[in-house]
């Protein structure tokens, strides 16, 4: 069930270049039922910022009623958020979207692919998948300074890193790493910029795949039709916030 709640900031700190990790606590966390869901964040009180910011959930803990979000500070809205400190409160709407379906995966060899700000929700995904599956995570960043959560991913997956400038890991894109991997995976999950998702969709079309898509959103609950994408279904489209943000790779046109 979706809730609107002021969550308490437990911590909020930089973990990479322009990248922050915020830990939030509140009852709303109990409603999260899958990795890949997102929350819609109100930027400050008052009238200046009228649109919420959709942020994916990097991890969640029902026992502690806590969740972690990782966000890149772009624009004055998220800059405001980066100034929050312990004990402050944050107006959160969520959880929203359907997340990654992992319930039926057992003993599979799974490829998880992330790029930049698309990496965070894949951490909770890898945590879940790794309980019953063999997971390989391929993560792409612009440069060494932007890398986060390498060790966390290594705890739950075989982790390979690419940087665009070659300052860490393999130089190039996630697709370059995937080319060199043995292709005995049964399923893949991906989240990242559209260009990356599109390239992965092409490269792995022989595999069952799931893509988590990012788009500018209005309401976040399916009412305003801002985050719509063409799709191969009866309606001819999907609403990313409500029908997604995760879609089967054969359903959406990128």
């Amino acid at each position: 069930m979706k809730k609107l709640e002021h969550l308490t900031v437990i911590s909020n700190q930089p973990i990479a270049l322009d990248t922050y990790e915020i830990l939030l606590e509140g009852d709303l966390v109990q409603q999260i039922n899958r990795p890949g869901q997102f929350v819609h964040i109100q930027i400050s009180e008052g009238d200046y910022h009228k649109l919420r910011r959709p942020l994916s959930i990097a991890s969640y803990n029902h026992n502690k009623s806590q969740m972690t979000l990782i966000y890149k500070v772009v624009g004055d809205g998220l800059n405001w958020m980066s100034q929050l400190s312990e004990g402050d409160s944050l107006n959160v709407l969520g959880p929203l979207g359907n997340g990654f379906e992992t319930e039926n995966l057992f003993g599979e060899k799974i490829l998880v692919i992330g790029g930049g700000v698309g990496v965070p929700p894949l951490y909770a995904l890898c945590q879940h998948l790794s309980e019953h599956n063999d997971v390989t995570a391929v993560l792409g960043y612009q440069s060494r300074a932007q890398i986060f959560y390498e060790n966390q991913f290594k705890d739950v997956s075989d982790t390979l890193i690419a940087t665009n400038d070659g300052s860490y890991g393999q130089k190039g894109f996630v697709t370059d790493i995937i080319t060199d991997l043995n292709d005995d995976f049964t399923t893949y999950f991906a989240c990242g910029p559209l260009e990356m998702l599109s390239a992965v969709q092409q490269q792995l079309q022989y595999l069952d795949g799931y893509l988590s898509i990012e788009e500018r959103m209005g309401c976040g609950i399916g009412a305003c039709f801002a985050c719509v994408r063409e799709a191969h279904n009866d309606k001819g489209y999907v609403k990313i916030c409500q029908d997604g943000p995760v879609f089967h790779s054969s359903e959406v046109t990128l």
Partner: peptide
């Protein structure tokens, strides 16, 4: 898309 953008005290759609 994009179909929406935030502006000071408002939005474009």
């Amino acid at each position: 898309t994009p179909r929406v953008a935030e502006t000071p005290s408002g939005m474009l759609n």
